[in-house]
Structures are given as C-alpha cells and as structure tokens.
Design a protein around this nucleic acid. Sequence first.
DNA 1: TCCATATTTAACCATATGGTTAAATATGGA
DNA 2: TCCATATTTAACCATATGGTTAAATATGGA
Lengths: 111, 111
Amino acid sequence: MHATLDELFSALSDTTRRKILIMLLEDDMAVTDVADPFDMSLPAISKHLNILSNAGLITQEKRGRVNWCKLEPDGLRDASVWMLGFGQFDILDIESLEKLIETHIDLTQTN
Amino acid sequence: MHATLDELFSALSDTTRRKILIMLLEDDMAVTDVADPFDMSLPAISKHLNILSNAGLITQEKRGRVNWCKLEPDGLRDASVWMLGFGQFDILDIESLEKLIETHIDLTQTN
DNA sequence: TCCATATTTAACCATATGGTTAAATATGGA
DNA sequence: TCCATATTTAACCATATGGTTAAATATGGA
C-alpha cells in the first residue's frame, strides 16, 4: 500500500526528518542513536520516525528492546517520479542531469 | 534567493497546489481561471498561489487587473536534486530511469 | 463618472503539527 | 527477582495550516 504524495512530500518538508534520512543512508540505527545528535526529546524523535514510516521512507524492525530503523529508498520513488514527470529535465539529456548533480550534490546541505 | 527545502517540500505536500502546478504546465493562467475547477473560495486559491510563489515554484505578473501565474520549473530543481542525490537511482542507469518513468508517468495521478 | 471585474486583505475558525514532560511498557542482564 | 535500558503512550501546549466570509482595492470599460 502506497503512501500518498501528500504524506511523502509532507514527511520530507521537515529538516529534522531529512537529516534522519541522511543518517540512515549510512547504516541502520536504533531509535536512541537516531535521537542522539538532535537537541530534542526522545518522544519527539519517535514521532518523526513514525511519520517517516507512514510515508514509506523507512521501516522499523523491533529486535529485543531495540527498534531498528532502516532507510527504504524506494519510498522516495513516487515523489521522484512525480517531479521528474513534471518534465523540467529531459530524461534523455544525461549531460545536463549530470552537470546538475555535480553542481548541487552536497547532501550535508539539509536546508 | 533560494527557497528552503522546507518551503519547497511543504508547498508540494498539498494536492490542490500540485494540481495547480500541473494546470500551469499547460499555460499561464489568471488567478480566477486557476480557481475555477476547484470547489474552494478565491481567497483560498490566492493563498495557495502565494505559497507556491514563496517556494519559487511559480511567479506572478500583474498586467492590468489580471495577475498572471506562470510555472517556474527551475523551482523544483533543489528538491529534485536533493532526492536524486539521495542515490536511489544510479544516474547513469538510464534504462531503469526510463522504465520507471514509463510505468509511473501519469500526471493526472495527483494524489 | 460609475459599475463590473479581478484580486487581495482582514478577521476568524477548526484542525494539524511539532514540541514538551511524566508515566507506562517491555526486554535484558546481574 | 529486580533494576537498567529502550521505546512508546498520554496529556498537554503553542503555533501553523487551510479553509471561510466580508470588506477593501485597483483597473477596465460604457
């Protein structure tokens, strides 16, 4: 069951949540470890993780006491497709796509 | 001056606003005409257009009484780049990108 | 000049969002 | 068994969001 585009874009519209996704790009993490770098309570992070789950951007698997958070890269798919389908890029024009990526790609730029 | 990713994704997270963007893909439109297909007051649409403007997704130009709304496709750029940079696609793997587009591309699917 | 048209502004309202703290729950380990 | 650790749930709060209606504003045209 697909998340709606509303859920997807809305989940992505928060800096904290985008940062979490980037952290999970590295490796799966426990909730407590996800929360660590943020100046925010654990329940707040727990809520953010729920929103990311509902949007299909992560999955959570409970092993013992620990709830492991895992990035679900396919979750971005629908949103990506919507945007690409929007046609601002000529899909076949790889040159420009590459140039674009080169100039902008800096995942630490989270805002 | 760039819109923030927060503003961008947040602007995209509303079905009405995404529909408006798709309408503007066809042609520039007056505010009243943008509002026409929606079961919603003019001020509500006016607010949506403001949000899209602030996100850099459209521009508005007042000529006479009419405020013309124009799609700003470059506005999607930062959001696209963030998502592409996320790496769920191998940029050079055009095959899969094309297949993806083919299977999903249906801009009328707004939600 | 005066009315119609196009749009925004103001004031308001209900609900959503993003945070808090305190308490509950469940598992691990001595 | 009992405490520590990991996490969620509950209750709450301030602000943001998406809508409304009524009034204001500005331009076009007879």
